[in-house]
């Protein structure tokens, strides 16, 4: 989870329009291209899982337990005789849903809180103490506690993973706002009697977008990782639902007999997180304008 690495402010002196064209015009390096392709394939796999999977991923088959690769079971079966290939294909759905959902939710909650904390001192004092408290609880413990104490469904899972990620986003937005509000153009707006909400909306918020986009990709990757960790520990979604973490959790007992359970799901999970992180790095590099030293 490289989240806290990238909270340093990125100087962005470009229009939103320019920002988008920069992202689109980004001449991708080979690694970025490979990452994008990998991610695209995983997304397609999740969307068309019913077409790709060869069997029902939840169908039990006590007669064919822990089989190795065959024409019927491309990647073999697990301890309940379920088809590993189909389970791995379906597993992409939960991971991507959690990743995207959590990234969306953290921004939805974190952006307004960060704007308010950055601009209003009174809110800042209270809110940031609360965020400090939240930060002090290691994310995985908070998520474990929330998920296991409520019934684990997709929603509670996403909320459980979102809550510990919020302080990072709030801090990022807040620091960006604190830096920008010192700029002369914000003072000029104050002098022109621009209403506070317009200052927040027009002058301060757009300057948080560039680092926010970057941070979002890292939150997405971190959420996928946390979901898999929870499932792996046995405290995530019900073990019948095919998720990569659940497949690996099932595989723990039989690791020496059937290592493919852990390695197939683990490989896809790693590739998915890796490609999102690489895209995040690429976005950061292209949005971070090279500050040229003034030359005399």
């Amino acid at each position: 989870m490289p989240t806290h690495l990238h909270t340093q402010e990125l100087p962005a002196r470009y229009s939103l329009h320019g920002l988008v064209t920069r992202l689109l015009r980004l001449r991708p390096r080979t690694t970025t291209l490979i990452a994008a392709t990998t991610l695209l394939l995983i997304v397609l796999m999740a969307l068309f899982a019913p077409l790709i999977a060869t069997q029902d991923p939840t169908a039990l088959s006590p007669t064919s337990r822990l089989e190795s690769m065959s024409a019927a079971h491309w990647l073999g079966t697990d301890a309940y005789g379920r088809d590993l290939f189909s389970r791995v294909v379906y597993g992409a759905q939960v991971s991507l849903a959690v990743g995207v959902g959590v990234a969306f939710l953290t921004v939805l909650i974190g952006l307004p809180l960060g704007l308010l904390a950055g601009y209003f001192r009174a809110i800042d004092a209270v809110l940031m103490r609360f965020m400090d408290g939240l930060m002090a609880i290691p994310g995985i413990l908070a998520a474990i506690a929330i998920v296991s104490l409520t019934s684990a469904n997709l929603w509670t899972l996403m909320i459980a993973i979102t809550v510990p990620e919020i302080p990072q986003i709030v801090r990022l937005v807040r620091s960006q706002v604190l830096a920008t509000r010192e700029e002369a153009f914000v003072e000029a707006a104050v002098l022109m009697s621009t209403p506070t909400r317009t200052i927040l909306w027009r002058h301060l918020m757009p300057n948080t977008f560039a680092p926010l986009i970057v941070q979002c990709t890292y939150v997405c990757a971190a959420a996928i990782l946390t979901e898999a960790t929870l499932s792996f520990l046995g405290v995530g979604l019900s073990s019948e639902i095919p998720t990569w973490g659940n497949i690996m959790s099932d595989g723990r007992t039989y690791f020496q007999l059937q290592p493919s359970l852990i390695f197939c799901a683990g490989l896809l999970l790693s590739l998915c997180i890796l490609s999102i992180n690489l895209l995040g790095d690429a976005a950061r590099d292209s949005l971070d304008p090279v500050m040229k030293r003034k030359e005399g």
């Binding site: 470009y14 229009s15 700029e183 002369a184 153009f185 000029a188 707006a189 022109m192 009697s193 757009p206």
Partner: peptide, 27 residues
């Protein structure tokens, strides 16, 4: 009204010159 020192920081980089100029009068 005020004119600031650093010309690179006194205009919002994300809005057009026109938007910067009409903001005050429209307020």
């Amino acid at each position: 009204q005020m004119v600031f020192q650093d010309p690179y920081r006194s205009l919002n980089p994300r809005i057009t010159i026109g938007q910067s100029l009409i903001e005050g009068p429209m307020n």
